[in-house]
Design a protein around this nucleic acid. Structure first.
Lengths: 225, 225
DNA sequence: CCACAAAGTAACCGATTAGTTACTGGCTTG
DNA sequence: CAAGCCAGTAACTAATCGGTTACTTTGTGG
């Protein structure tokens, strides 16, 4: 892999222009397959996703897809892994330990909501993975090591709040995180059936804003001592 | 359709026994196709479901499936409609207007949780339907008329609570219902990825009990004035 | 500068899958 | 009791889909 990077630098010696796309570019090909597959799997699930559609979306020959990823299932696994890496990476930008307890919880809730809102494909992939009882997640050694350090940080935050007499003494950090995630996930992933049944456009800007504040309110109300 | 019902009554004239299965029984065949299809669609989504698998599960010839339901998509729609009718029917057994406001909210929360817990196939079908942006739900005239009368009842309950000074004045009934549904739906439908990532068996009896109480607690804490 | 490995293409293949055709057999109705 | 309709069967088909084969092109290291 490192060899490739070295090779890619000295390209296009004639004009020095980086604009002309290389005729052969493994990294770019791999990345565009992954991006196309993410879209396709998110839109259609694993059973509905079409290998030919992914190839077409990526603008590559189907053979390359097998060249880089083995088969459809391994490609799906790569997509899933990348999606989890994405949210765990973004989480790191949150610095809960510097904040007041209540503010920290509010920030965590708003961050989670914001990430879900901006990454519908992540929610969709979670849904697909759960439909299959985490069949691929369970077999991924890479993802099992990746489990969130959130819970530890959250635990500290709760303990600080408890000492200041702000929070109830029996708050479980995992349950708190599940509460935050549940309120965001359900609202967004079920938006289509909910909007249809209740006749209210949940994705309307003002409704989204109300729900964001709602999540913070519910979360804090449930843990205050 | 009405003809069928009339014809089915006078069956088995010879022995009068209802136990011996009829050689030909439209209602039973239709019902077993629907039950088998519910399982298959819930387990595999619409793209992953196999018509042959449904036929085998139902113990019928594939031709019958097309005979009764037209094609795969119409069969899926029938399954979805039946699933919604199921929960709306169960909802009617709840009599919120007879209860104290706080008790009423608690009952609603526990009912919703209990129904989700006992009907995983309903949650799965919701997930599938949302993956496809409510494509079938939106085209179902039957389901659009069925939308929950919960919201109205819930509205009354909230107003009563408000008058007694128990609840905050600005509680939106739909948002309250979404909160209750979100906490139940996310915990159960995402149990596989969550249990894997956080290393805790969410379906353990005691954890289920904790979460049930948690839903009631969170819901009430968020609306108390 | 050329040999070799890796990137890339096009055409193909066997298996699967949704849906059909052509038929049999049993129940009801006149 | 006969006629006709409808439940039910088995075998088939056309199309789709995941995956492969056989081949060409491109870049790079000895």
């Amino acid at each position: 892999m490192e060899k490739m990077q070295g090779g890619a630098k000295g390209r296009n010696g004639a004009a020095g222009r980086a604009e002309r796309p290389l005729q052969r570019d493994p990294e770019r090909t791999r990345a565009s397959i992954l991006a196309a597959a993410t879209q396709e799997f998110a839109e259609n699930g694993i059973g509905g996703a079409r290998v030919d559609a992914i190839a077409e979306r990526a603008g590559i020959n189907k053979r390359m897809l097998y060249h880089y990823f083995g088969d459809k299932e391994q490609l799906y696994l790569a997509v899933l892994e990348e999606a989890y890496v994405g949210i765990r990476t973004a989480e790191k930008s949150l610095n809960l330990s510097d904040l007041e307890p209540e503010q920290g919880i509010a920030e965590l809730a708003m961050f989670t909501w914001g990430y879900f809102l901006e990454h519908p494909e992540f929610l969709s992939l979670l849904g697909t993975e759960n439909l299959h009882r985490a069949r691929w997640l369970r077999q991924s050694t890479r993802l099992k090591e990746l489990h969130s350090s959130f819970i530890d940080k959250l635990s500290d935050l709760l303990q600080r709040g408890r000492k200041e007499g702000l929070f109830r003494p029996d708050v479980d950090p995992l349950n708190l995180y599940l509460t935050i995630a549940a309120l965001g996930y359900f609202y967004l992933s079920n938006q289509y059936t909910l909007s249809t049944i209740f006749g209210r456009d949940l994705m309307d800007k003002s409704n989204l804003d109300v729900w964001k504040r709602h999540i913070v309110h519910v979360t804090l109300a449930s843990i205050r001592g």
